[in-house]
């Protein structure tokens, strides 16, 4: 069983953290991962920075730019993660855009992931049909899970398609928005979370986009398996640095 699947089967609400590899400093990646593990986070998404991140708001855009400027590359990320399984046992997911993966070579990328112990990928601009036709086999060969997104606008038919193509969890985008919205959740999100919960999907759902504090975390986790925090974590890193990680994770978990 893949580490993601194992984690999903635990009887608790999961807190997943996203951060951009190579930010704030080029060689922060490993230490951030270790601290997240030591502070009781359940899963991590490592952002592979891209020059043109279409689905991201200003915070993640800026962190990606800094990371690239710092010299982050796909090769370097794999080098940094080379010994990660000696110290970190969390499920690890690489989240990035399709073009850098395409340039690296899909098979080579998947092979590297499997060598260093990455468990899954989130590639928002790799469409479902394209994945199933051309890449599903390769992912399977290297025991990598591909995590798909759904949004409030995704039709029920398509949600069922995505559900049957998914094996880890479904990434439920909280609202019609790029990452980093700080408007909180209202009735619309509550209804959407409930509606999807009632669909009785085979996969569990983890909510992302717009989660920023313990309140939004518990709202999101109430109808799902857990939630993912990205922009708010990166903002904290920008302001306080790695020393702020422990207090940040505690503040989310305090409910």
């Amino acid at each position: 069983m893949n580490r993601i699947q194992q984690k999903i089967s635990e009887d608790k609400k999961l807190l997943s953290i996203y951060f951009t590899a190579g930010y704030p400093k080029l060689d922060d990646t490993v230490e951030i991962l270790q601290q997240l593990e030591n502070n009781g986070v359940d899963m991590v998404e490592i952002g592979l920075p891209f020059s043109d991140p279409l689905a991201d708001g200003p915070t993640i855009q800026a962190s990606s730019q800094v990371a690239l400027k710092n010299g982050m590359t796909t090769d370097l990320l794999f080098q940094q993660l080379k010994d990660i399984r000696k110290t970190v046992s969390l499920p690890l997911i690489i989240m990035g855009y399709f073009n850098p993966v395409l340039q690296y070579g899909i098979e080579k990328f998947c092979k590297k992931c499997s060598e260093v112990g990455v468990d899954g990928l989130i590639l928002p601009d790799l469409p479902l049909a394209e994945f199933e036709e051309n890449y599903a086999e390769i992912f399977k060969k290297y025991e990598l899970l591909n995590i798909f997104l759904i949004t409030p606008q995704t039709s029920e038919d398509r949600i069922h398609q995505i559900d049957s193509a998914s094996e880890g969890f479904i990434y439920m985008v909280s609202s019609a928005s790029v990452t980093g919205s700080s408007e909180g959740f209202g009735e619309i999100q509550e209804k959407y979370f409930e509606r999807i919960a009632l669909m009785k999907l085979k996969n569990l759902l983890i909510v992302g986009f717009g989660i920023q504090d313990s309140k939004t975390f518990s709202q999101a986790a109430n109808h799902s398996k857990g939630a993912i925090i990205g922009s708010a974590f990166i903002k904290m890193l920008s302001e306080k640095g790695k020393i702020g990680i422990s207090a940040f994770v505690d503040s989310i978990r305090k409910v």
Partner: peptide, 22 residues
């Protein structure tokens, strides 16, 4: 350019060896 993805389309694209759009 080399084959890559820009603005939702697979096409020829000016980019770095690492797939960053230039």
């Amino acid at each position: 350019g080399k084959v890559g993805i820009i603005h939702g389309s697979k096409t020829l694209l000016m980019q770095t060896a690492d797939g960053q759009i230039t």
